[in-house]
C-alpha cells in the first residue's frame, strides 16, 4: 500500500546536534550540561516511514530528540507515531481535549483489558473508564504503560545525584503541558511507546533493551477529541532509547471511508 502525503503543515526535519548550554572552564575547555551522546550518532539508520492507515494526512511533524510535542487528534482521526531511529521511547499522556480533568489512566486501561501490556486492540481509557483512543495498528510485540516517565527527581534515585541536571520526560511534560494549562497535578502514569518493561514471575520489573527498530510504528484512532502530549525521551542512563536519542514522526490522518481497522 502506498499513501500520498499531501502535507500543508509539515515542519522541517530538526537538524542535529541540538543547541546545548555550555560554559568555559578556567583553562578554556568547553563544558556542556547535556550528556555526551544525547544526540544520535552519525550514521544511525533513520526510517521516516508512512502513515499506518490509508487516508489524507492532516498533520505531519517531527519531534527532535529530547524535545516535547503536543497536538489534538479529532475523533475518528488516526495518529501514527513512527519510531524513526528505533527503540526510542515516546512518553505519552492523553487528555479529553475539551475537559482535561479526564485524562489517560494506566490502571483503568490495564484493568479493563485484564492485561499489563498494550497491544493492537487495546483501548486507551481515561480515569472515568471511557475510551480516549484505540490502538488500531502496532508493529512491535507489546508497548509499555508501567514504567512511567523519567524525571530529574527520580533520576537521582536511579542513578545518583550527579545526574540532577540531566533533561527528563517530566520536564518535557511540564513544558508542553503548560501550553495547555496543565501542571504538576496533571502528570499521571503514562504510556511509553516503543519501550520494553517486562514483569517477571517474582515481580521483578525494569526497563530493558527494546524490541523496536527503525521505522516501526503504532497507530491510535481517537474515540473522542484527544490532546496528546509527547516527550521524546532524553534519558541517557537506561536503554529506553538505546542510549542514542533519535527523532519521532507524528502523522495525523483522516482515514479513508472504506478503511477498516483490525481493532
Amino acid at each position: 500500500m502506498t499513501t500520498t502525503i499531501d502535507n500543508p503543515v509539515m515542519r522541517p526535519v530538526t537538524t542535529i546536534p541540538v543547541p546545548v548550554t555550555t560554559y568555559l572552564t578556567p583553562d578554556g575547555q568547553l563544558v556542556s550540561s547535556v550528556p555526551v551522546g544525547a544526540s544520535y550518532a552519525d550514521g544511525s539508520p533513520l526510517e521516516w516511514g508512512d502513515p499506518l492507515v490509508p487516508g489524507a494526512v492532516v498533520l505531519d511533524e517531527q519531534v527532535a530528540p529530547r524535545a516535547s510535542w503536543s497536538g489534538v487528534v479529532r475523533a475518528g482521526q488516526v495518529l501514527t507515531i513512527v519510531d524513526v531511529g528505533g527503540n526510542q521511547s515516546g512518553d505519552c499522556l492523553l487528555y479529553n481535549a475539551h475537559h482535561t480533568d479526564e485524562r489517560y489512566s494506566a490502571p483503568d486501561t490495564l484493568a479493563w483489558q485484564d492485561n499489563a501490556y498494550i497491544r493492537t486492540g487495546t483501548v486507551l481509557r481515561s480515569n472515568l473508564g471511557r475510551a480516549l483512543m484505540t490502538v488500531v495498528g502496532n508493529e512491535i510485540d507489546r508497548q509499555d504503560t508501567i514504567g512511567g516517565a523519567c524525571s530529574r527527581e527520580s533520576n537521582t534515585l536511579r542513578y545518583g545525584h550527579h545526574v540532577m541536571y540531566h533533561h527528563g520526560c517530566r520536564e518535557n511534560f511540564l513544558t508542553e503541558g503548560a501550553k495547555h494549562g496543565l501542571g504538576m497535578r496533571d502528570i499521571v502514569s503514562n504510556i511509553n511507546w516503543f519501550m520494553n518493561v517486562p514483569v517477571e514471575e517474582d515481580g521483578a520489573l525494569g526497563i530493558v533493551d527494546g524490541m523496536s527498530a527503525p521505522g516501526k510504528r503504532v497507530a491510535l484512532r481517537a474515540e473522542i477529541d484527544t490532546l496528546v502530549l509527547i516527550s521524546n525521551c532524553p534519558q541517557m542512563n537506561n536503554p529506553c532509547n538505546d542510549f542514542n536519542p533519535t527523532p519521532l514522526r507524528m502523522i495525523v490522518s483522516e482515514p479513508d471511508v472504506d478503511y477498516e481497522a483490525d481493532a
Binding site: 494506566a106 508501567i146 514504567g147 512511567g148 534515585l157 504538576m184 520489573l205
Partner: peptide, 18 residues
C-alpha cells in the same frame, strides 16, 4: 499536595511490581 503517590515510580524505582 501536588506531591502525591506515583505508582509508576513506586514500582520502577525498587525494580519490583508487588
Amino acid at each position: 499536595p501536588t506531591e502525591r503517590l506515583n505508582v509508576a515510580d513506586t514500582q520502577k524505582i525498587p525494580w519490583q511490581a508487588y
